[in-house]
Design a protein around this nucleic acid. Sequence first.
DNA 1: ATTTTACATCGCAAATATACGATAAGAATT
DNA 2: AATTCTTATCGTATATTTGCGATGTAAAAT
Lengths: 107, 107
Amino acid sequence: MEHINYKEDTEALARFAKALGHPTRIAILRYLENQSCCFTGDLVEVFPLAQSTISQHLKELKLAGLIQGELKPPKIKYCINHENWETAKALFNSFFEIHVEDNACST
Amino acid sequence: MEHINYKEDTEALARFAKALGHPTRIAILRYLENQSCCFTGDLVEVFPLAQSTISQHLKELKLAGLIQGELKPPKIKYCINHENWETAKALFNSFFEIHVEDNACST
DNA sequence: ATTTTACATCGCAAATATACGATAAGAATT
DNA sequence: AATTCTTATCGTATATTTGCGATGTAAAAT
């Protein structure tokens, strides 16, 4: 409830991870990946989920900054937000870079 | 509620991401990182959270396979599970590897 | 045998997430 | 102006998450 103040990097990484923490959202991003970049609401035909549910997942991905929507009336073209994508990538990369010098465990 | 059947990679990535989707858990892992490998329950002194709360976060990290506990009575030594860590790292790496050939958007 | 130490687990409350159908909203078409 | 198409949002139900204090547990120390 209260807010512990973590470093901004930590919070940012957790936010990205949270957005990626649902298989449907991973699948949506992979789909966007395959479509090279763009896409329309045919996600609804690809996934066995209600349109409102898909829309909600897209909203979360957008909120996390991983995708962006561009109005192409009457449709909306969703693309990966490459700037934030790179940010996320870098955060995960450096997070997973662990330098374990041997097994220096204090037994 | 029902289970859409995603590819195992997708589910695995989402599981890891979900476990990383809380700043406290990121911070715990970073702490483990800094301690080279091992650690005891002094997390409770580091974080302004109840012991039961810390224990719960550790449980989730353990469930996700990111850490492991070794009994060193009367304490428990937690370490990063390097095997699964590498698995997660590889999953995130390949996920973020996007090859966008130009901006081949179908406008 | 009792006490202490170090964690885990239980039970609870509040908040958040997930999914759906129904409805709203915006622009284009008729 | 009414209809259609595409997407967002609302309201709701259920499930999961997060946090806490209290209690349980297992081994070590007294």
